[in-house]
């Protein structure tokens, strides 16, 4: 059909413009966009976080406490170097927050936390540094985490072999794992002693606790130590 012949003036087709997330006139979301910082405003959802803006566009997020140290102020030059520094600071902050959230749910070993951060895309160096700092502050404690794992597995009735495997996969060191194993053996022995008929001879009690611990996968020395701690010296 020839529209021209009808005499109607049809406007030429224009490409459809979709507004972007940051408005129509944002040329790029490159965080290294050079220029001067136009605003430093708090994140209303999280006051500990501050947005850094250049030409009204958010170019970085940094923890509020780092603003001064990084020399961030309105009018300061926004360089690619500063952008990179802010990105690293943010990654460290986010990693730390992630660790604290995970620790609030349950104890984690440092190996578990580093693995978790790496799975979220944090590089090994940053992940290790963050976890090391949390260890120094006492937030992360491998020994405590190993004990928590052993206790929780013990409650589920897992064998010592399974607990050892869990501790190994959680990255608990040999010494830490051994300590947790001894504690778990004592808890298991306690449960066994509670079930024993009090009228049984000491020798029988010893043998029954020892066999119960053997069946739960504790080695002889660990079982003997746990039994001794509850029933006293081994009968002749």
């Amino acid at each position: 059909m020839n529209w021209g012949s009808t005499g109607i003036n049809v406007p030429p087709l224009r490409p459809q413009v979709r507004p972007s997330l940051f408005g129509d006139n944002v040329p790029s979301r490159d965080i290294t966009t050079a220029g001067r910082i136009s605003a430093i405003s708090p994140d209303l959802k999280n006051p500990t976080v501050t947005f850094v803006k250049v030409a009204g566009q958010v170019v970085a997020r940094v923890p509020f406490v780092e603003v001064d140290r990084l020399g961030l102020r309105v009018g300061a030059t926004w360089s690619s170097m500063l952008a990179k520094t802010c990105e690293q600071v943010w990654m460290t902050y986010e990693s730390r927050e992630t660790c604290i959230k995970l620790m609030a749910v349950r104890e984690h070993t440092s190996v578990q936390l580093v693995a978790k951060l790496k799975s979220k895309g944090v590089n090994h160096e940053v992940a290790s540094r963050v976890v090391e700092d949390l260890k120094k502050e006492g937030v992360v404690n491998d020994e405590r985490a190993a004990e928590a794992i052993a206790h929780s597995e013990g409650k589920k009735g897992s064998s010592a072999t399974k607990v050892k495997a869990r501790l190994r996969s959680a990255g608990a060191g040999a010494e830490v794992a051994l300590k947790a194993d001894k504690k778990q053996a004592k808890e298991a022995a306690q449960k066994l002693v509670e079930k024993l008929d009090g009228r049984l001879a000491k020798t029988t009690k010893w043998r029954r606790v020892m066999s119960g611990l053997a069946r739960r996968g504790f080695d002889e020395d660990t079982a003997r130590a746990a039994t001794r701690s509850l029933l006293g010296a081994e009968p002749e």
């Binding site: 020798t203 029988t204 043998r207 020892m210 066999s211 996968g217 002889e220 079982a223």
Partner: peptide, 23 residues
């Protein structure tokens, strides 16, 4: 298996202990 060896050792002390035999 270590647990079997340990239990057999315990059984030597009393071969009639039903608890160890059951284990």
């Amino acid at each position: 298996m270590p647990s079997i060896a340990q239990l057999e050792k315990l059984l030597q002390a009393d071969p009639q202990d039903p608890f160890v035999l059951y284990g």
